[in-house]
Design a protein around this nucleic acid. Structure first.
Length: 485
DNA sequence: AAAAAAG
């Protein structure tokens, strides 16, 4: 295996990486860094979680050199605010041994700090399109000297929704420049389109085309959700043996909010990220998940791409995504950096055609129709979740000595865990998406940091039941999608 | 059609 030190990278950058324990280069890094360093335009394609960020980040930093002149010389555009924060942090790490300064420019935040950093002479900008164009329009951001330009999640950035913004941005950056586009997914038409913004780009695919598109490190399990109480099954999956962190994707913001309420109510340590939350709440949620203060993240596709969190062992598609690209990116939140992961997908009856499409595109070769949860012993075997339990499942308390209550008498449960009013209904409640700040029973008593994971919920004993009205919006299974739009 | 991205 090639090390970063062997790729022609400046020593201080190699040192910054080494301090983080990063020594060996992934194939995409090995193949693109030596090309990016001398300024070759690159379309870089590699599977999720295999190091694309450094593939462009290292050449950008090194090519800026040690020139202390203030002003924006490099621009990295990303599709979501959280990804802007993450890539900013990576770039900040890479520049630690030198004076190059980095700033994150994205919406939902006060202008002031960002403007101050620009005025202070920031040289590398990582940002989302809206705020970039906003500040450029106000002459607070001068991109005319940006000679290093990167589109991360490039196919998304060149997608219809973003393309007009990206065109505007390309009009503002230096006409003679070094351009790099990276993504795990690069459909042919997008590659063709991308060439418009590049000069003689080389298209690097870090994996053998015969190998298929999916990550070998990820096990894919797909279940038909017809007449299935998805909340219940998800609650079981969350008790799988060896589960670390888990990301659950929903189709809509409302579904994400409902599910985080539901799972929090069941005692899981869950937070949410979606576009109806304040930016502050989004970032708090992400940070809490990354730090291990929460081990369940419920998200819309805002978190489908790029987000890199250690020790995500499970990805759950509460609703199947629309296309194979989104499927691939969502699943790719696990199985990163060589680790293994499990992706579980529930297919609602009305979404069977989506599964057919994804199955074909990704060449899963899984027999159709998809397996039915209730008749599939695989689910239990593969997921190692407590089987045979009935009723409303909630998280097993960390303390082993909790008696099993099998009736409807939930008195003692109410005593040990304060009842929480659901903050839904009126106004479309965007609280802070974290649903609850205090989940005392499972939280503080149990040792809050579930980072280590599974030793808490050792119990495979029957879950205990809690009395609670069903039906108020927390409907069962297949019907959990909001009434069609 | 949803979600994202400016406010």
């Amino acid at each position: 295996m090639t090390t970063f030190a062997e790729l022609g990278i400046d020593q201080d950058i190699v040192d910054s990486l080494a301090e983080k324990g990063i020594v060996d280069a992934f194939p995409i890094q090995e193949q693109t860094i030596p090309l990016g360093l001398p300024g070759q335009d690159i379309i870089g394609q590699a599977k999720t979680g295999t190091g694309k960020t450094f593939g462009f980040g290292i050449p950008v930093v090194q090519r800026l050199g040690l020139d202390p002149a203030p002003g924006v010389k490099a621009l990295i555009v990303v599709p979501t605010r959280e990804l802007a924060v993450q890539v900013y942090e990576d770039m900040d790490m890479l520049t630690r041994g030198r004076s190059t300064s980095v700033v994150a420019i994205y919406g939902g935040k006060a202008y002031e700090g960002q403007i101050d950093q620009l005025k202070a002479g920031a040289q590398i900008v990582v940002g989302t399109p809206g705020r970039l164009i906003d500040l450029a329009g106000q002459r607070l951001l001068d991109l005319s000297n940006a000679t290093e330009v990167v589109l991360d999640e490039a196919d998304k950035m060149l997608d219809l929704g973003f393309l007009p913004d990206i065109e505007k941005i390309f009009q503002k950056v230096a006409p003679v420049r070094h351009t790099m586009l990276y993504s795990a997914t690069m459909p042919g038409p997008i590659v063709a389109l991308a060439r418009r913004f590049m000069s003689n780009p080389i298209h690097i695919r870090a994996s053998d085309p015969d190998e298929g598109l999916t990550q070998a490190n990820i096990k894919h399990l797909v279940y038909r959700a017809h007449s299935l109480d998805k909340d219940e099954v998800i609650a079981r999956i969350l008790q799988a043996e060896g589960r670390g962190k888990t990301v659950i994707f929903t189709r809509t913001k409302r579904a994400a909010q409902r599910l985080v309420d539901e799972l929090s109510d069941r005692g899981f340590n869950a937070g949410a990220v979606h576009g109806d939350m304040s930016q502050e709440a989004r970032e708090r949620s992400m940070a809490g998940f990354k730090a291990g203060k929460r081990d369940v993240l419920i998200a819309t596709d805002v978190a489908a791409r790029g987000i890199d969190v250690d020790d995500v062992t499970h990805v759950i598609n509460h609703t199947i995504p629309d296309d194979e690209k989104t499927y691939l990116h969502r699943a790719g939140r696990t199985g990163r950096a060589g680790k293994t992961g499990i992706a579980v997908t529930f297919v609602d009856w009305e979404d069977l055609h989506k599964w057919a499409l994804i199955n074909r595109a990704l060449d899963f070769g899984q027999p159709e129709p998809v397996e039915t949860y209730s008749s599939s012993p695989h689910l239990f075997e593969d997921l190692d979740i407590p089987a045979g339990t009935k009723g409303r499942l909630r998280k097993m308390p960390a303390t082993a000595a909790v008696p099993t209550v099998s009736g409807e008498a939930g008195g003692e449960a109410g005593a040990s865990r304060p009842r929480r009013r659901r903050t839904r209904g009126s106004g479309g409640g965007s609280t802070d998406g974290a649903a609850t700040e205090n989940r005392s029973a499972s939280g503080e008593g149990a040792g809050t940091h579930d980072g280590g994971g599974s030793e808490h919920h050792d119990g495979k004993s029957a879950p205990r039941r809690r009395r609670r009205r069903r039906g108020s919006g927390s409907g069962a299974g297949a019907g959990s999608a909001p009434a069609a739009g």
